[in-house]
Design a binder for these strands. Sequence first.
DNA 1: GCGGAAGATTAGTATAATTCATAGTATTCA
DNA 2: TGAATACTATGAATTATACTAATCTTCCGC
Lengths: 300, 300
Amino acid sequence: MALNLYQLKAFFTVAQTRNFTEASKRLYLTQSAVSHAVNKLGKSAGDELFNKTSKGLEMTEAGRILYKACETVFFEIEKAEEHLAAVKNKNLGSIRLGATVEFGTTLLVKYLKVFIEKNPRIHIDFQFRHELLKPLLNEELDVIIDCTEHDSGELLKTPLFREEYAVIASPGYLRKHRIRQPADLAGHNILSMDKEGKWWGNFLNALPAAGRPELSQVTEMNHIRAMINAAIEDLGVGFVPRYCVMKELKAKILADVFPKLKLFEGNFYIYQKAKRAGLERHRSLVEYLKNIKSTHLERA
Amino acid sequence: MALNLYQLKAFFTVAQTRNFTEASKRLYLTQSAVSHAVNKLGKSAGDELFNKTSKGLEMTEAGRILYKACETVFFEIEKAEEHLAAVKNKNLGSIRLGATVEFGTTLLVKYLKVFIEKNPRIHIDFQFRHELLKPLLNEELDVIIDCTEHDSGELLKTPLFREEYAVIASPGYLRKHRIRQPADLAGHNILSMDKEGKWWGNFLNALPAAGRPELSQVTEMNHIRAMINAAIEDLGVGFVPRYCVMKELKAKILADVFPKLKLFEGNFYIYQKAKRAGLERHRSLVEYLKNIKSTHLERA
DNA sequence: GCGGAAGATTAGTATAATTCATAGTATTCA
DNA sequence: TGAATACTATGAATTATACTAATCTTCCGC
């Protein structure tokens, strides 16, 4: 039979992307080359590797067997390459690090400055977006920092810190509209990431059922920074991670509406594919990231 | 860098055999092809992979890194191939089974008959020799059954049974020379695998120091079967694994000189490379072999 | 049924693997 | 020391294979 690495690589990438054309781009090859390679691999495996269904490609059993082998094989090769590079004082390779937009653009880049200076042989590329899990699973990203909960055998999860939220408004807005307790929010313009109010859900849940306001007038905007700026401009009341507005609170261009209320949202976690967590560069980065705290922004 | 499977295979085989020419034979390639491949691999790894020393090849650090990766990679590929074959009802591959000459040619082949009939998709090749460990380590053999003790992290050891020995002679010989107790052996012709008497060491050790005979007249012969046949022909007294002479004892062409003495030699063990023990065909075979007992020969 | 998207096919080219022939390097032994 | 032996390395030629470009097929939505 004699499996072949070119073909396995092509197959593996197709399996990850579920798309020959996309795979060909990742591999810097033509779609034709990928098609050839996967077909040849299928022949030497004695079976088709993919079935074409109405909604895309689906692996056959033979495909799944090979996929599992590929995970180990390519990881092992990558590890060996990293190890060789380490011995020869070469670059250790790169990490594609994903994080949510606000967290990434503010806290993360500042915190990583020291790591990047101390580890010149590890290159880090950044991807700040909201959708993080899927790119991690299909190997567009190597490490992500996300504040949603995922649990799967193939992912390694490292807890970072508890994210504290705050209800914010500009001091001017608060002077005009007295807001003393949560119930007072009814009728105010509510700045939210979504129209349905899921974004404010954790705030509401933190309140006793009796004191929950009816959030009727909701303005949707799909970036936290936009929400913050809107609040600064007196456009309404926002609900945001506290670390995002540390500076604004200090500078008093924003105020904490309910300073006595402790509002915790989900944890921040580092996620990586369990297999790839064995890479030395992953280990160093995660070890460093573990010490990040939401309070790091205050120093900045 | 982009490591390459052909080159890794060539390198891996050279590393196992410590010999380019031997590796080329195993790979059904020319020595030149192997040399080219290993050199190219060395170039893409950025370092030499072997140093030539006065007594053969020696891996460099880069070589050792790659060797470790190869172990995993090729095992994983082999496992995938076996798995694919299983799904498609093809042959599961072959096992090169090694055992000591006497054990292999008598007990083992008979015992394995049933396994071979029940598992037509696993092919077994046999190698009966005295040197078993080295061929196992350099991948000339996949599984060996040996009665010597080895302990190493890379080997998986499965105990089989305790081997019982017996002192034998032909009934005619015993009629002529009365042998009542071990001390009577002095002066007799002693049949042994070696001239120095190490072979009889375990017999002597089983006796109280006072009753140990002086084995002065030793005849060396390098096969157990030869020793047995010599004993049958009245040539002297032999010391052999009991399972080897079950038939002869029953047929009364040989007699147990000290039937009341229980003489145990070392255990029999199955050894395999730990990595390769994960192969399905290895598991089935070892599972079956575990039930072998030295008494199986009596039935035959 | 037409256009677009995605994969397959075919034929030709580029690249890499393999061989052949030969040269080089230790080691052994007379 | 020189010849014989047993390796490995090298370069040119050959063969196998990966890859591309262009074209074709299929499937899906409008």
